[in-house]
Simulated scan of single mutants.
Amino acid sequence: MPTQPPAPHVQVRIGARGSKLSLAQAGHMQRRIAAALGADPADLAQVEAVAPLIVITTTGDRVQDRRLLEIGGKGMFTKEIEEALLGGRIDCAVHSLKDIPALLPDGLCIAAIPEREDPRDAFLSLKAERLEDLPRNAVLGTASLRRQAQALHRRPDLDVQMLRGNVDTRLAKLEAGVADAILLAFAGLKRLGLDHLPQSLIDPVECPPAPGQGALAIETRLADCEAAWVRAIRHGPSVVAVAAERGALAALEGSCKTAIGAYARFEGAHLKLIVEALSTDGQKRFRHAGEADMTELADPEASARALGLSLGLAVKAEAGDAIDV
């Protein structure tokens, strides 16, 4: 006889996009949240009782034939979900952190970041092992201005074509020869069990990923930011690292209209950060690096964000309008 779920003292309704990757990520966090609420994460009935998953289709999911900057930026993956949060139809949202704009709507917060997955970009191709090995004038498919600019900085001969869609769609287009290579977040491939597919991984210091790439974000209303279940799923080092990267994002007023990369990592107690911005054609690149000792700081998250802000402002001052679309 199946176990009957306990009557929950708290129910947390989870909102997420309906893509395969989003559902895989949300399902993982659904079990984590259910466990934090006292349910058995292996018992599906208990999990569904205390942490039901609600699928919400976003504008970014519906419009697949244009770059995000043409339809309103990366917020198009979060707008409808955040409206459901503010309207009380869900209690939290599971996002890929890199999809969240630097500024959140009033009344909402990024309440928790669990342990971050590998933040690197993955190179996939049927013709080459690395970007450098592609034949001249090869077609690279990507919808990311950052990936476009970084690739053109290394290989200005490449023909970069806009390629949107979910992971399966992009892989199918690669297989069909629409592009000679594509770039995807390695974290997403790992969460889908496809981490065997990349030919190689991109060095995150040489080509910093999107700020927050590889991290999931649990977004809630402000009143729930310090709920016990929220605190139970936070991962301190990941919170600090992405705070630095998003500090740089905020300083650069980053969106899908700017090619921005940021990568923070711990070496012992030292947090090291590299920030870069590029012109969309890749010809101009502006980079600044710095570090901070996180030992015994009262608020390491705030210190990390300050580091990101300072480096982001330094990049912005040097670049001027060279990085504007």
Rank of each mutant, 00 (worst) to 15 (best):
D168G: 12
P52K: 03
R231D: 12
P114C: 05
A24C: 15
D121S: 07
K127P: 01
I323D: 08
R221L: 07
C92D: 13
D293C: 08
I233S: 05
A151E: 05
H28K: 10
E291F: 00
D91N: 11
L104F: 12
V167G: 06
M29W: 11
L252C: 14
G165V: 08
E253K: 13
L183F: 05
C256A: 15
G312Y: 04
C256I: 02
I182V: 14
A298K: 12
R170E: 01
V325G: 11
E83H: 13
S125I: 01
D159C: 09
L86G: 12
A36I: 11
T59Q: 14
I323L: 07
V94H: 01
I113G: 00
A314C: 02
A223G: 05
V47A: 13
K74N: 13
A128I: 03
G73Q: 04
A45W: 15
D99R: 10
R17H: 08
R305D: 07
V315Y: 03
A298T: 13
D159L: 08
G107D: 12
A172I: 03
E276I: 01
A149S: 08
E129T: 00
E253H: 12
A262K: 05
K79Q: 15
A223K: 03
E115Y: 05
E245N: 07
A302F: 01
H235T: 10
C109H: 09
A187Q: 06
A241S: 14
G38S: 14
L222C: 11
D180H: 07
A16Y: 14
E206P: 01
V10G: 04
A16L: 10
E129W: 02
L311I: 04
G73S: 05
A143S: 15
A102N: 07
D106I: 14
A181L: 04
R155H: 06
A151Q: 05
K284R: 06
I182Y: 02
L104H: 09
I33P: 12
P237R: 11
Q150C: 07
P300T: 12
V242W: 05
I218L: 15
V10P: 04
G254A: 04
R191S: 05
M162C: 11
D121T: 09
S303N: 01
R234V: 14
G27R: 08
R234D: 06
G15Q: 11
A172G: 06
R66D: 09
C92K: 10
K127N: 02
G193A: 03
R130P: 01
Q4M: 09
K127T: 02
L273E: 00
H28A: 13
V10I: 14
A138C: 02
G254E: 00
P105Y: 07
A187C: 07
T142W: 01
G60H: 09
